[in-house]
């Protein structure tokens, strides 16, 4: 199983949530956060001195899916974000050792189906 973490603009949350329509995504967790990337939060041709940075509000959307579905989900997330501006988002993929559905005790792939 893999965890897909998408760090996106807060106003694009609905676009990404529609990825639920993609088979393999049976839920997601969303965290309000803030951050910046390579441009350190400056995008408008401003005069940026070393050490300066600017935080922007972001949403982190986490999904756990089976490995086979990773590429399809990533593709859907990228397609749903149509504006393609700097600061749009970043996706990280990591491995998940196990998953448990607390109500039934199911583990592994069964827990995320």
């Amino acid at each position: 199983m893999k965890k897909i973490e998408c760090i996106i603009q807060p106003y694009n949350l609905d676009e990404v949530a529609q990825v639920l329509a993609v088979e393999g995504v049976r839920g997601m967790t969303v965290i309000e956060c803030k951050g910046f990337g390579v441009q350190r939060g400056f995008t408008r041709g401003e005069d940026v001195q070393p050490g300066m940075y600017r935080f922007h509000p972001k949403m982190k959307v986490e999904m756990v899916v089976v490995e086979d579905d990773v590429e399809r989900v990533v593709e859907q997330v990228r397609k749903s974000l149509k504006m393609h501006e700097i600061g749009e988002g970043k996706i990280f993929i990591s491995s998940v050792d196990d998953a448990i559905r607390t109500r039934t005790g199911e583990r592994g792939r069964d827990a995320i189906r």
Binding site: Q9, P10, Y11, D14, K34, R54, F55, H56, P57
Partner: peptide, 19 residues
């Protein structure tokens, strides 16, 4: 709020109005 927070909220509001 910071400028970025207000800007993000504004953009979200405009998206919702459009929708």
């Amino acid at each position: 709020w910071s400028r970025e927070e207000v800007d993000a909220k504004l953009r979200g509001i405009m998206k919702n109005i459009h929708r």
